[in-house]
Amino acid sequence: MSEIVLQIVSRELLHSLGNNKLDYIIDKILEGKVLLLEEGLTPEEQLTLIKKAMEKVDIDKFKGIEMAFYPEEQKKYGIFAKILKKKISRVMLIGPSDVISEIRRKGNTIETIIRIIE
């Protein structure tokens, strides 16, 4: 691999994918792409994505995923969030763990080291 594709996925596309959203994300990651989601995933979706990633782990080819996001602040949704208990993370970066080699949180910034495997 000599180049990395960073795909920015719009909120509209994510919404249009409906129940296929996580399969879409996993398929793109398996292609080696790094995704920047305009709207992140709920905690349940994150855990389901981890489960799907583990199901896809291939000892030599695919080792899993790395993801970085900012959890949504509850107060932004006010009383409705407390009723619905839905916390959607804000912008989310996600990709194969052998490409995203490290994620560093520094206060209000997230740095990621992307490794190009020759």
Binding site: P43, E44, Q46, L47, E66, F69, P71, K85, K86, K87
Partner: peptide, 19 residues
């Protein structure tokens, strides 16, 4: 270790969502 990892956040987020 730094506790603010994605895994910890995801686990806690799920526990909160599932009450």
């Amino acid at each position: 270790q730094d506790p603010y990892t994605q895994v910890n956040i995801t686990i806690l987020g799920n526990l909160e969502a599932r009450r």
